[in-house]
Each structure stands twice: as C-alpha cells, then as structure tokens.
C-alpha cells in the first residue's frame, strides 16, 4: 500500500513539474505557432541557475531562487523571441530549427559552465520532515510541488480567462489577423507570452531541482515528455496541458517503477490512442 501511495505522489509531483513545462510550451504554440524546442533547455537552465544561486549566495532559499531564476529565464526567452524569432515570422520551419539550435547552445553552455556531474538542489529545511496523514508518511516537498503546480494552473487560468490581457491572448489564438485588425497589440503579446512561458519553465526547473537535481541531459529527458503532454492534451489548451501532464506523470512514474526497461514504450500508448482517435488532442481546438 505504501508503495502505491508513494508512487502515486511521485506521479503527481512529476505531473506538476511537467505542467510547469508544458503549459508554457502549449501557450507559445497556441498563440505564435512556434514549436519552441528550447523549452527543455529553459527548464534545465532554470535548474542550474537555481542550484547555483542557492549554493553560492547566502540567504537565498528555494522560493527566492525560483522567482529570480524565472525572471532571468523569462528575459532570456524575451531576447530570443525579439532578436531571432522575430526575423523569421514568415518561416515557421526556420523558427523551429532556430529554437533547436538554441537548445544545443544552451545545453552545451550549461555543460561547459557546470560540468558533467549532477548538481543536487537541497530541499528546504522546513520541508524535509515527512508529512504524516492517515497513518502514512508523505514526502512533504512533493506535496508542495503539486500545490505549486495547482496554484500556477489557477493563476494561468485566471490570467487567460478573467483578465483583459487574457482575452487578447485568446483572441490572438483564435484569429490572429482579426485580432490585429481591431487593434490588439499582437506583437507585444507574442513577446509577453514567450517570456511568460520561458519564465514558468525556468522556475519549474528550480522547483524540480530537489527532486531530480540539475544534470546534463535534463533537457533531453524533459522535452519529449512535454511534447507528449502537448500532443496528448491538445496544443494551445491549458486544460489539456494540465490533464496531459498528470496522465504522463502517472504513466511514466509507474512505468519506471514496474517495468523500468520499457517505461519509454509505455509512454507511447496513450499518445497512439489519442492520435488515432483525436488527432487534435483531448482538449485541442486547433490542429497541430
């Protein structure tokens, strides 16, 4: 029983982290039609920057590191969008290739700066004690990560559905030309959404640090999971990213625990089913 509960919680924690990665990817894809393959690298960059900040700067705790790193990665994302992707606005394939090139550059820069050994991120001291509930012990930090993901999901939902900016973003997703024609500053929105997506991914990397630590190849491990989440949930859909993240979190965690050799193949299965019967994804409105 303890096994199932602990693995269930691990699944939720991984799902939460995946949501932080996939929601930004999905939003960027939905609004800008850019498959941002740098997204995994943003996550990894966040993990490294956060680990570094916590270990080398006195008095910086995990939350401050996550916030600061989120801002730094958001700024990096904004620069990438403004300086490079903007040049290629009529060339979607070129944009994908550039984001792929950037992911190689960032990943190699991380390897160059921080070396090949994993850098663990310490769990905050007050969250190290297991949480006792219903006679079971839960690792507190994982519960907190799930909480963070839910808070982020609610905040993103509020932003998209309840604010003026959110209404503009939704208008841009549905019909960009019309949105432009009625005076919505789509160009500024693009940069804002790209920064937002990159920032969430960067902060997610820091929050994931105590669970998975920062290591070379983290980007290549996380990006395909995020892609599968988005293919599963539907591009541009926040709800799809949320549901997809937790589905993949469960399948991957239990796959690793029960059939470690074949965990990657099991990931396949929900993707095949969804693509076969609902190519636009569970909650997607636009085709990929």
């Amino acid at each position: 029983m303890q096994f199932w509960i602990i693995q269930g919680l691990n699944s939720l924690a991984l799902g939460g982290l995946l949501f932080l990665l996939a929601s930004g990817f999905s939003l960027i894809f939905g609004l800008m039609r850019i498959a941002n393959l740098t997204h995994g690298a943003f996550f990894m960059l966040g993990a490294y920057l956060g680990a570094n900040a916590i270990r080398s700067i006195d008095g910086v705790n995990l939350w401050a590191a996550a916030a600061g790193t989120g801002l730094v990665v958001a700024a990096a994302g904004g620069l990438l969008e403004r300086l490079v992707l903007r040049q290629l606005s009529t060339n979607p394939l070129g944009q994908v290739l550039v984001t792929l090139g950037m992911s190689f550059i960032i990943a190699d820069a991380c390897l160059m700066i921080w070396g090949g050994d994993p850098i663990p991120v310490p769990t905050p001291a007050d969250l190290r004690k297991p949480l006792l509930m219903f006679g079971f012990a839960f690792p507190t930090y994982r519960v907190v990560v799930v909480g963070c993901a839910i808070v982020a999901a609610i905040a993103l939902y509020g932003l998209l559905e309840r604010t003026r900016i959110g209404a503009m973003i939704r208008a841009g997703v549905d019909d960009m030309d019309m949105a432009r024609a009625i005076g919505i500053p789509v160009s500024a929105l693009f940069t804002a959404v790209f920064c937002l997506g990159a920032g969430i991914a960067g902060a997610g990397g820091v929050l994931g640090g105590p669970i998975m630590s920062a290591y070379p190849g983290l980007d290549a491990d996380m990006l395909p999971l995020a892609l599968i989440v988005v293919i599963l949930g539907g591009v541009g859909s926040l709800l799809g990213a949320f549901v997809g993240s937790f589905i993949i979190g469960f399948i991957y965690t239990f796959g690793i625990a029960l059939l470690p050799d074949l965990a990657y193949v099991i990931l396949f299965l929900p993707m095949i089913v969804v693509i076969a019967f609902r190519p636009q994804g569970l909650f997607g409105r636009i085709g990929a």
């Binding site: 039609r33 979607p92 990006l223 988005v230 396949f268 993707m271 190519p279 085709g287 990929a288």
Partner: peptide
C-alpha cells in the same frame, strides 16, 4: 502522418526519443 507541418515534426521527435 495523422499530422503535417509542426505536428508531424513534434510526433516524429517524440517517437525517436522513445
């Protein structure tokens, strides 16, 4: 091939990563 364009690219990428 259920998808074309960027969807095709993402699916082929995901399959090869598997």
């Amino acid at each position: 091939l259920r998808a074309t364009g960027l969807g095709f690219l993402m699916i082929t990428l995901a399959l090869s990563q598997v």
